[in-house]
Amino acid sequence: MILPGATLGMLGGGQLGRLFVLAAREAGYRVLVVDPDADSPAGRLADEHICADYDDADALTRLARECAAVTTEFENIPADALRTLARDVAVHPSAEAVATTQDRLREKSFLRGLGLPTAPFAAIHAAADLTEAAGTVGFPAILKRASFGYDGKGQVRVAGPKELAAAFASLGGVTCVLERRIDLVREVSIVLARGERGNTASYPLADNIHRGGILALSSVPAQIDEALSAKAVEMAVRIVEGLDYCGVLAVEFFVARDGALLVNEIAPRPHNSGHFTVDACVSSQFEQQLRALCGLPLGETRLLSPVAMVNLLGDRWQSGAPRWERLYSTPGARLHLYGKREARPGRKMGHFCVLADTVEEAVRRARALDEALSTPA
């Protein structure tokens, strides 16, 4: 076990890294953050911020020399950098797991290899593949860049085959995945952790609502039946075992109109939809990331209260600061801001959670507060 007082490394300095730093420092660990942004949210809270690219040789040498273990904030860390580090220091998640999940085509092929259901998909490497892919997948569909896409970026909705060529060109003609759009009842996600010895611990499923491809609201517990919930847990465990994963991972699912449960995406890290765990669970997803990284027993994931979480995007600041006094007047509300200095449309600036006696009441209060924050006096 790696115990308090040790130094840990974090590749990535955004809000997920910041929340990990808070959990680690609260538990008595030192944290070195590597991020090329001189004003990164995690870097400003870390014991030291190494302002460098993720594959910078000097930065990796320092991490290997000074850290007892290294983890990642997001999936687009170069896998080769993780392989380099792993020669001298424990790295979780592994380079192989990250490489699988940072490319949609590899990820979907991995899921297919496990026998897990996904939306119908086809690979498009060049314009010559468009006709065959269209015939395989059908329409309506979504064309997605195979790599470097998140929060709805790098995606184009395609209603029919005549729109496909233009959509492919708009994404730069790079390798893409064409995916059939599913007739959905809801979208749900699960966050779970797996330790070095293969033990797992999962949090309750979250119901998710997106706007413009970005998560807007999560509510827990998800309003799905026990059998479907148990199936989601079983599928998520198969994924972490298939990746031989160590750390915290999230799986997003589609619940189709016909009752089918389909895997949408894997995130090899704590997840936006898991932020509720900080306020509403015995152990947060960031404490769990710390425990898995350090070889400690996994924490208890029990839900203490029904909860709703709302993302705060930079759009809200365009007409002035949100009306925070209204948040503090709302029973059960908890605010988390990420320390980002510039509020831009679509940029995640923070989130708030509302705890209540029932999930219905938590959602009602959260939606009312969501509107009130931006309503003039």
Rank of each mutant, 00 (worst) to 15 (best):
V21Y: 02
V21C: 13
V21A: 06
L22N: 14
L22I: 14
L22T: 15
L22P: 07
A23Q: 11
A24L: 13
A24D: 05
A24E: 08
R25I: 00
R25Q: 15
E26I: 00
E26T: 10
A27E: 07
A27T: 02
A27P: 00
G28I: 09
G28V: 06
G28M: 04
G28L: 09
R30Q: 15
V31D: 05
V31Y: 04
V31C: 07
L32C: 05
L32T: 01
V33D: 05
V33A: 04
V34F: 04
V34R: 02
D35V: 01
D35M: 02
P36A: 03
P36D: 03
P36M: 00
D37V: 10
A38W: 05
D39E: 14
D39A: 15
D39P: 01
S40H: 03
S40Y: 03
S40E: 08
S40F: 01
P41F: 14
P41M: 14
P41H: 10
P41L: 12
A42H: 10
A42F: 01
A42M: 12
A42Q: 04
G43S: 06
G43E: 00
G43W: 01
G43Y: 04
G43R: 02
R44K: 15
R44L: 09
R44D: 01
L45G: 00
A46R: 03
A46I: 04
D47F: 02
D47N: 14
D47V: 03
D47W: 06
D47I: 06
E48V: 10
E48T: 12
E48F: 09
H49S: 08
H49I: 01
H49D: 03
H49E: 04
I50H: 08
C51Y: 01
C51A: 13
C51P: 02
A52V: 05
A52E: 05
A52T: 06
A52I: 00
D53L: 11
D53M: 12
D53C: 09
Y54W: 14
Y54D: 04
Y54G: 05
D55S: 10
D56G: 05
A57M: 08
A57H: 13
D58E: 13
D58L: 10
A59D: 06
A59W: 00
A59L: 05
L60N: 00
T61P: 03
T61M: 09
T61F: 11
L63I: 04
A64F: 08
R65D: 15
C67H: 08
C67T: 06
A68V: 09
A69W: 11
A69M: 09
V70I: 08
V70A: 07
V70W: 03
V70Y: 05
